[in-house]
Amino acid sequence: MTEIVLEATDLVHHLGQGAGRVQALKGVSLALKGGELVLLMGPSGSGKTTLLSILGCLMTPDAGTVKVGGQAVAALDAEALAKLRRERIGFIFQSYHLFPTLNAEDNVRLALDVRGERARAAKLAAREVLATVGLGHKRKSLPRELSGGEQQRVAIARAIVGKAQVILADEPTGALDTANGQAVMALLADIAKDPARAVLVVTHDPRILPFASRVIHIEDGRIVSEESGGESMKKVSNA
């Protein structure tokens, strides 16, 4: 039986101040089980990024609770939250956020270096993961020497090298062509086969629906529907 690795209950959050203050999340609850690849879909301004920031422990909600691996995060200070992120959460961003002056191997190694892992072991782990994402031969390349798809694969390697329980991906295929987008999603789907890990992907891209275990739709700060990947595929096909 798979366990819940990430759980959010009744999340409420406001953004902005004064007259510009808006309620970005209006009581959002969700849970991610190990072995799932969940897509979070919704229009711009629906609260996807705010929810991702809160689930990734980068932002504290005004109300509601978040548990990562069963641990409630509300009482944790900034450094304890950072520890939680480096040990349990992996991030993948639309614009990759690789370090332009470091090669692929060092970019991946960074995720272990911030955990204080020994350089030699971290190097070996980085090489192994780069090989897993098909970039073993490009470990010495700088980001500018890699294609968009390759850069995103380096970012995935960085997210998974520390064996994070939760992978949070923000529009991972947003800057990629179809072939590269499919390759990246195939990698994420592979990661989600591990029953100890869950992947949450924020996306607008209907082409990646076939990879989803579940699809959650969010609008105006509320979850409006939730369905399996298969059901979602059917809807899109019928439309």
């Binding site: 980068l58 480096r86 956020h97 960074l110 995720a111 911030v114």
Partner: peptide
Amino acid sequence: INEFATLRAIGSTSRY
């Protein structure tokens, strides 16, 4: 700044 924000996001300590 984006690189430092990334470091922060991936969980580096302030000291790092």
